[in-house]
């Protein structure tokens, strides 16, 4: 395994709203997502931005893992726009939305979405792929995850917190730092 798995950059001591890292495998990307999911509450929104093949669906698989949902159940909702997943315990369920085929934010409303999620998000963590296409509808409290191609197996991951996600950024970056240290042993 390569040494520098999570390359933290520019982390000020307080008021962190952004975090950057690099992963060298799908599994590492999933681990970051699972860490985020364990900090998520019902009604939370995670917006995923990145090109084809950047690993957005893989990231959602990691979110599922963190929410206690069998990650192998996660498949791409590109065609049906949204999937819902339940888990065995009382943790939030997962709503997985793909805006790839949506022609605008108003079409998100056709699956029952209301600003800030509404009923669809009431008991769920909502993951939205191609979130940049429906940004105006996502509300003020979103964790945006940008996935960028670096090499065939390597991705740069940028996490940006808005609203209540900001209050969790410090512990999130800490959790991801711990992961980095463990992996480097």
């Amino acid at each position: 395994m390569d040494g520098n798995i999570l390359d933290n950059q520019n982390l000020p001591d307080i008021g962190i709203t952004e975090w950057c890292g690099v992963t060298n495998s799908v599994e590492q990307t999933e681990m970051i997502a699972a860490t985020i999911a364990r900090m998520a509450h019902k009604g939370d929104v995670v917006g995923l931005v990145g090109e084809l093949g950047a690993g957005k669906t893989q990231f959602v698989r990691g979110l599922a893992l963190g929410l206690g949902i069998n990650p192998s159940c996660i498949s791409s909702p590109t065609f049906v726009i949204h999937h819902e997943y339940e888990n065995a315990d009382d943790r939030p369920v997962l709503v997985h939305i793909d805006a790839y085929r949506l022609q605008g934010p108003d079409e998100l409303e056709s699956i029952g979405w209301q600003p800030e999620g509404g009923e669809l998000a009431a008991d769920a963590v909502v993951a939205i792929e191609w979130a940049d296409r429906v940004a105006s509808l996502l509300g003020n409290s979103t964790l945006q995850v940008d996935l960028e191609h670096v090499a065939e197996q390597t991705r740069r991951i940028k996490i940006t917190a808005k609203g209540y996600w900001q209050s969790r950024m410090e512990s999130l970056s800490e959790a991801l730092t711990v992961y980095k240290e463990v992996s480097q042993q």
């Binding site: 669906t57 893989q58 192998s72 996660i74 498949s75 791409s76 590109t78 065609f79």
Partner: peptide, 10 residues
């Protein structure tokens, strides 16, 4: 069995 990620048409 079913797709674990993208459907073939997708």
């Amino acid at each position: 069995g079913r797709t674990i990620d993208d459907a073939v048409g997708e």
